[in-house]
Amino acid sequence: MSAPDTEPSLGGLLRHMRVAVAAFAALLVGLGAIVVLGVVAPSSASSVIMLVLLAAMVATVLLFSMEVPQEPPLTRFFSGLGFAWVAILVGMTLLDYFTR
């Protein structure tokens, strides 16, 4: 099956997706780091670092794959709102467990 003239080669398509390819690479690196820290060479500080890495990966998906910065302000607000509410849910429930 040959593409019509207007359609680019694979390289041409990827040239329009530089940000996405960079995000893809960053996510794979983050995954690798989490696996190394948590499975191959765990240490006492691993958990904290892994949570930071997770936050970075979540931010990568939101900012680059889902293009939040190009959305109107309202959508940006929504994407942050969800995580703020998760923080309320988890934070206040754990407050109970830590003060028993």
Binding site: L37, M50, L54
Partner: peptide, 8 residues
Amino acid sequence: TLIYVVPR
């Protein structure tokens, strides 16, 4: 991350 790796 949260279910498989962190609690190990």
